[in-house]
Every structure is written in C-alpha cells, then in structure tokens.
Simulated scan of single mutants.
Amino acid sequence: MTGRAWPFLIARGRRRGYSALLVPGFLREHGFLEATATPLDEVPSRAAATPHGVLVWAEHAVTTAEAGGEPRDEYGRPLVLLHGFLCPEGDPVAAPAALTRTSALALSVYQRFLADEEGFRAERSEPFAIEVAEVARPRFPSRVSPPAEPARPDRGLVWAGAGVLAAVGVVIAVVGFASAGSDEVPPPPRCTRDVVALTTTPTTGAATCVRDGTTVRYSLPPSDR
C-alpha cells in the first residue's frame, strides 16, 4: 500500500546546538524528534516507532564544500546532519531510497540555516509517496447464530395436567381420611349401676365403661370372662 513520508532534519550549527530545522508539516509539536533521532553508532540508518508513526533516519557528515567553509562548530566538532522521514501509515518498504531523497532536501535546508543561525526558524516539510508494508488485520470469527429457543408447552395441556394432579391429590386425601377413620376404636359403653370400679388393676378379666364422663375399669363376673 502507499503511504506518506514526511521529511525532517535535526542538526547543529557552528554556534547553535542541535535542534529541529525541518519538521513534518502535520505536527503541532516536534519535541519527540530530538528525543528519538539521536546520533548513530556506525549504523547506516535506524527506525523507531513513535506515537505519530515510524521514524526513520540516517547521518550525513557535512563536507567543506557543503558547509561553504570549515565543517566544524566553534568547539571543533564535525557538523553532522540527522535527516530522515516520519511515516504515519506504518513500516516503509523502500527506506534507503527515501533517505537518499531526504538527504538532498536536508542539505538545502541546512545551508539556509548556516547562512543565518540566529534568525533561522524551523521549516515545515511536505510529504512524498512511499510504499508501506500492510499490517495484518486480526481475523474475527464469523457471527454465530444464537441457539433456537425450546418449544414452549401448550397452555391447555399445562392446565389439563394440573387438573389431573389436583384430582389425584383429592382422591389420595379422601382415601387417607377414610383409612384413618376405620382405625378408630369405639368408645366404651356407659357403666351400669352394679359396676364397681377397681381400686387396683387386675392382670386379667378387666373391662371398661364410662361413668360421669370418666372411663373406669371393673372386673367381669366369672361367667362373662
């Protein structure tokens, strides 16, 4: 896919220290450029991810012809350009070719800077097209249909079943009451006048009857035993 490369330049002059001399035109602040694009240690170029995209840069040692004089600062240090581009769309495919292009642009900006270091203000760059590696997008599973709702039973059948259960319950209750009633023992008869209550409970031959609401025990005559 095609992306955009925004050139930038960081360099120092003969009297002025390192600062951003060319910044991508879409940025509102560029402090991260100076913090990220640092001098390289025997590496032709470097790339780093930033909040604004991938930053790619290289070094270029300024020659005497390019500097229009001694290519050193007031302390004798060589003048070096840190130039490159910022790619918001992702990783650039042809970074070396793009760095060749930014090197020529950076040199022209730097020469304007050397002509008036104190009055120079950072310039804003315009992008150029660059091939960018496509980022693989995560694949999400296809939408799964929710399971079908189970069939609801017919209300008529539900009420009919409830009626059957209620009828069965009534039958069971009636049978229970009937069974309970059949086990009841009939009350003893009323005592006659000749019945004399026992003062002690005999072991055998005793009967019961009711006198004045009280159940008493008495001995049966020998003929009734």
Score class of each variant (00 low, 15 high):
residue 74 E to P: 00
residue 96 P to H: 09
residue 10 I to A: 01
residue 196 V to P: 03
residue 4 R to A: 14
residue 71 P to L: 06
residue 85 F to D: 01
residue 168 V to K: 03
residue 113 F to E: 04
residue 51 P to K: 13
residue 12 R to I: 08
residue 74 E to F: 02
residue 109 V to W: 07
residue 119 G to N: 10
residue 16 R to V: 08
residue 208 T to Y: 13
residue 4 R to Q: 15
residue 54 V to T: 14
residue 43 V to H: 14
residue 225 R to F: 06
residue 58 A to N: 02
residue 67 A to S: 14
residue 7 P to W: 01
residue 211 R to W: 05
residue 58 A to I: 07
residue 43 V to K: 06
residue 18 Y to E: 13
residue 86 L to W: 02
residue 72 R to A: 15
residue 146 P to R: 10
residue 20 A to D: 00
residue 28 R to F: 00
residue 59 E to A: 15
residue 187 P to V: 02
residue 87 C to L: 12
residue 100 T to V: 13
residue 95 A to Q: 14
residue 157 L to H: 08
residue 91 D to R: 15
residue 70 E to T: 13
residue 204 T to E: 15
residue 96 P to Q: 11
residue 154 D to F: 04
residue 93 V to H: 05
residue 72 R to H: 11
residue 78 P to A: 07
residue 38 T to R: 13
residue 98 A to D: 04
residue 25 G to P: 10
residue 114 L to A: 10
residue 129 A to S: 03
residue 143 R to S: 05
residue 142 S to H: 07
residue 203 T to Q: 14
residue 40 L to Y: 11
residue 40 L to S: 08
residue 53 G to V: 08
residue 47 A to Q: 13
residue 164 V to P: 08
residue 12 R to G: 04
residue 110 Y to C: 00
residue 37 A to K: 07
residue 162 A to K: 10
residue 9 L to T: 01
residue 191 C to F: 09
residue 122 A to R: 12
residue 109 V to A: 03
residue 6 W to R: 11
residue 2 T to V: 13
residue 184 E to R: 14
residue 55 L to A: 12
residue 17 G to P: 11
residue 147 P to V: 06
residue 99 L to F: 07
residue 225 R to C: 01
residue 129 A to M: 00
residue 35 A to H: 13
residue 63 T to A: 09
residue 135 V to T: 14
residue 64 T to D: 09
residue 124 R to H: 12
residue 153 P to R: 15
residue 90 G to K: 07
residue 197 A to H: 00
